[in-house]
Design a protein around this nucleic acid. Sequence first.
RNA 1: GCGGGCGUAGCUCAAUUGGUAGAGCGUCACCCUUCCAAGGUGAAUGUUGUCGGUUCGAGUCCGAUCGCCCGCUCCA
Length: 485
Amino acid sequence: MSVKQLDSLDKIVSLSKARGFIFQSSEIYGGLSAVYDYGPLGVELKRNIRDAWWKAMTQTHDNIVGVDAAIFMHPKVWEASGHVEGFNDPMIDDKQSKKRYRADMLIEQHIQKLRDKGKSDKADELQQKLDTTGTRKGLCEDLYDIIMEEEIKAPESGAFDWTEVRQFNLMFKTHYGATSKDDDDAIYLRPETAQGIFVNYKNVLDTARVQIPFGIAQVGKAFRNEVVARQFVFRMREFEQMEMQYFVQPGEDEKSYEEWLNTRLEWFKSLGIREENLRVAPHPDDKLAHYARAAADIQFNFPIGWQEVEGIHNRTDFDLSRHQEYSGKKMEYFDQKEQKRYIPYVVETSIGLDRCTLMALCDAYREEEVDGDSRTVLKLHPKLAPTKVGIFPLVKKPELKELAFKIEKNLKEDFTVLYDESGSIGKRYRRQDEAGTPFCITVDFDGLEDNTVTIRYRDDMEQERVSVDKLDTVIRNRMKSWKSE
RNA sequence: GCGGGCGUAGCUCAAUUGGUAGAGCGUCACCCUUCCAAGGUGAAUGUUGUCGGUUCGAGUCCGAUCGCCCGCUCCA
């Protein structure tokens, strides 16, 4: 049997639409860029992943609790977090090479060049100008003026043919209050869920009887006005994060960071993601986010290449210190054991739920040759499968239907099930293969005599004859012992 | 956002120099069918992405706009 591997996202996009996993948002109006909706199967798959994460983080750790913070937050939160500043890149395009640069970086490079040439007076003067951008006409205009005055050329093409400097604010802004019009009432849609945890850190500490080290977990939507949002649900403007912030004593952060990196990697394997498609990629120091001391990606081998699904960050005491500074509220923790007071360090695990869903689909997708026929199958971990059990009468005869209905009624208490009597039996199996349904039960005439049915397994298409009363046990055992291949 | 490519039924694609929009698959209904998609009959589905222009006549030519794909940048 030959198995074809996935070489582009197209097949996943097609399958997602055809089977009802994922649709483009507002499709009947021509679609909305980089926004997607989950259909009947997609919502189940996504929820199963979310539930697995929540269980792994909170239920199996007695020192991790959950919160569900609002998307709207006080605007000061984003000043404190550094997003107002750091998420605000002034960009300029070289019309010749079509390359885009950060305007302030261009000027800094130019200053460095001047220094290398020994023109430090000129360099200092420029640095002074760069430091005071925004005080003359405006941030973009001031940067543009410097580039024009100094005739800074594009690094790659050597051309001096720039567009204007434009600002790419990655945060969505909206107005708070029905009558508000001006920017005084501007409020942001959160660009990450983490801040909802930090601002509730004291509340949790005061109410949940937790002691350091402890964690706070949260699942929720975040919004980023990405310059380039593409590649299906991989990079969306509205997306869902599953984040956990782990608060530790300073000095314990590096050890905790290593532990969480490992714990999180194991979680992916527990979802049945094949090990060869997973890897850890540490961030080089010069590419760290403004809040991080150390960071690593857990990457998955997507058809579009190795890409980040989860980030583990050592955020130090950056966030809590900043919130202490901006809010004027003490963020210190009094450690009874150590008899000392400190602002905890934070290790963050941050995973994209939509990316994770896409990963599950990509990892599970197979096209197999079976006796000259092709079969498309999603070999999802049974616990992630949108439908667990398909139930069919072999043919549309009343006596077979009767037993099938009875089995459906019994199993639907514990599993998501689907009854189907249309088309040939083979066709019904294949339909469920595409949906990733791991088990199909078929009621035949033999079984009416001794109260047995056949159960057919998605992965190898093997069948077993099972007593009707043992069905739930068999399914449960199979789900537990399932391994990816 | 900028540059390039693309846009016809749910999907894959046809449609002669500009001259009546079609097929296969899928979906649905009925029939047939005792275990791996391709048996029979029938049905639904399109302002050819959208808007405008040229023309007697536009899926086809022109313009704008929207969306998708690839690259530049950033991240979950």
